[in-house]
Design a protein around this nucleic acid. Sequence first.
RNA 1: GCCCGGAUGGCGGAAUCGGCAGACGCGGCGGCCUCAAAAGCCGUUGUUCGAAAGGACGUGCGAGUUCAAGUCUCGCUCCGGGCACCA
Length: 899
Amino acid sequence: MEAKGLEPSNLLTASQALYQLSYAPKWRRATLAVRTSPSESGKGGAGPPQGVNCGTNPPGDPRSRAYPGAMARAYDVGAVETKWQRHWEVEGTYQIDNDDPREKFYALCMYPYPSGAAHQGHVRNYTFGDLAVRYQTMLGKAVLTPFGFDSFGLPAENAAIKTGTHPRTFTEARIVELKSSLTRLGAVYDWRREVRSHDPSYIKWSQFIFLKLWEAGLAYRATAPVNWCPGCQTVLANEQVLPDGTCDRSGDLVYKRDLEQWFFRITAYADELLEALDDLEWPERVKTMQRHWIGRSEGAEFDLLVDGQDGVSLRVFTTRPDTSFGMTYAVVAPEHPLLDLLTTDAQRDAVDELKKRAAASTEIERTSAGDATQLEKRGAFTGSTVHNPFNEQSVPVYVADFVLMGYGTGAIMAVPAEDERDWDFAQLHGLPIVRTVQPPEGWDENGGGAYTGDGAKINSDFLNGLDIATAKAQALDFLERKGIGERKVNFRLRDWLVSRQRFWGCPIPAVYCPTHGVVPVPVEQLPIVAPDDVEFLPTGQSPLASHEGFLNTTCPICGGPARRETDTMDTFVDSSWYFLRFCDPWNDEAPFDPAAARHFMPVDQYIGGIEHAILHLLYARFFTRALIDVGMAPGLGREPFKRYLAQGMIRMDGTKMSKSKGNLIAPEHYYDTVGADGLRLFHLFAGPPFDDMDWSPQTEQVIEGCGRFLDRLWRTLSPTEDQAPAPTRMGEETDADRTLRQATHRTIKAITDDLERWSYNTAVAHCMELLNALQKYARIEGGLHQATWNEAADALLELLAPLAPHVTAELWEQRHPGQPSVHLQRWPTYDPELTRAETVTMVIQVNGKVRDKIEVDPDIAEADAQAAALALPKVVDALAGQEPTRVITRAPRLVNIVL
RNA sequence: GCCCGGAUGGCGGAAUCGGCAGACGCGGCGGCCUCAAAAGCCGUUGUUCGAAAGGACGUGCGAGUUCAAGUCUCGCUCCGGGCACCA
């Protein structure tokens, strides 16, 4: 799973660091300093986390707040966190076996591209994921929590070209870095199940799946114009080209080039992928994005006979067959096979000129809106006319670059009156405009132009007077009755181009034989692994293409000399099935055991960045279906991800925090000050998980505040603290005791609710409130009630355990020596009787304005509530003798007296 | 241009079903402790008028629905993201 814009090296060069230190805002320098010298980040040696809070004290002055909190921390954060991280590793609480009898829960964070040490985006992601793992475990479930690395990809190869390091060496070093910073976060995984895309045992099954899809006709070869990036020396998917026509990694201008490529037939699943979206528990926003991406449109295809060319017809696609009477010209794509035939000698030069320009343009340029006046240059008359079967009239045929061969039939009927682009084009080329829908009154007076809204049909013979929907249906009937056209559904979605002319990817298992053509590599020969002795030069071809040992092979059919496919697969192929491999990663007879997949799938909670909301999720949904349909996963559910949390991104100075922008903030420094627990709490507390978050100077102070909360927790609950409250009182419960008990049970209810609806920020707030209540209770006269205090304290530790796992584990152990860990406790339950309010504040409004509030019984009768309200002196004053016209009573919440 | 989000105190945010706007935290202010500071603790903190009691105003802007709108409807403005003339 690659984030966009990653650069090969994680380390700043000396000059970059110098620049940043000199010119970066003061508060940011410190983190840069920490990042560039992680070895110095030990206790006391770390640079100040921010300049803003340093006050006026000179550096070195012991009074300086340069390292806030660290010297006053209530407990040894580093020692506690290391202790428990080791404990979890040894204990194996979060390793589960496939035959675990407990109810399963599959929690998964998108596996990362190993770009080096973790940054705040990772921290946020894995904090959410780890919370789910620990919470669901406390609910008594067997939680599958695997981790892996999306370890193929361009950055490693670019690094190889630059430095000569083999991509594997480079990648594995990055994996070690990422893993170690994740360990310090205290996120727990079943590392036995780790997978890496570049591992031969994973390559083997990616290739196996490829062969299965090929066998089933879901993988095929076709010549297609592809985006060629001169910088990366590789083909890019349309989706990887930025709107300005440049490569999303290198920034080079991308141009078109015809190549024979491998495709996966995702379009065969277009309808199903669209329809199944409805039932997913995904953010509406993401589902909408996928719907638009698939882009289903219903319409008609029909033939226009070419005048003077016996029997030759031009087939067009339209979503508006009802407007056919308004067709005043037709347009074909520059690549249209009939274009040569349509072009007359007189128009040949103009058409050729246009064809040449279109070939040199990127698709983005051809399809981007731009200035409407440019349309004149972007189209040319072919010299031919075609026959409109609706009104028996002939209209001219134009060629224009904005019509694409890849969508519909590569030819359109143009109806300028009801299409804005057609209108502009008609105006510039002096073509007639005939309205077929009556625009609303005053339309032309208010600027006019194309009218795309609904209205009565006009100038349309048998369709006149109908609305658009009815007219559409009748126009379709007309075409089908006459046998010249049919109803047709078109999709914007295109087949998935999987070939990459790269080295650091999964080799495509195919062989080219002069006699037998393209032949699949026999399964017994898998995996096909790239050789190590390759030269990384930006030659324009994959190093594989020039490696004789790899290139030369024999035909599996005839044994004669043959050539290997040297293209590798798009890394999205690897990420389209890794979640299945996690179910059964040890399997060496199949990618996964169907029974294991049926047991763990679907993923109950999937978490990852919104940047993967379209492509990765769509490809994974397609793959799951394809694997079922080729017989590899009988009985598996067709949707891989039941619930998806689209995590917001972290911004700094208004832009996305990313490596390419050089504005990453490393977590290590915070591990030393507030600890992983403090940093996790901050990420949970900062706002809703799906919202974007701004990293600002204030952020440092909020993180410090989270650390302070944990300090207070420690001082209040640790038996090792001399000042810690010591409950001794037994027996009868006082009012103050009961108040605390209610607070405890209400907090249990609130936090359980919060976690179920992903409202992590309010869950943290509720923990803070309970601690505040505990501290307030600790000051009461007459000593603390033992049972009440212990119940509240233990509940708080349990509720906080998934959020701040280290400190809660330590405090629990101190309070319950020799007993099972807090993480092995069952999630606390509440007594509904105690969560019920004894009194409710009832608001009394006069004309909608709050005039008074009274405490009432929650079960107060409507009549009693009303009577009580009307008797209040403030209400009597406000009424001033007037008789209310209406009294709205919503007992026990509110009474509104309307005059 | 189209599509999808969003806008609430000095700041991050809360308000789950149309019913007390501002939970919790950050920051600020005042105090305690201290030789002093840091840390900690206590209090306070939407704006405004008022000495106070109390009042008025207040969820980007403008309308509307409703007894009642941060929440629903319509029309805007600005910000963020996605998509690119999709026939």
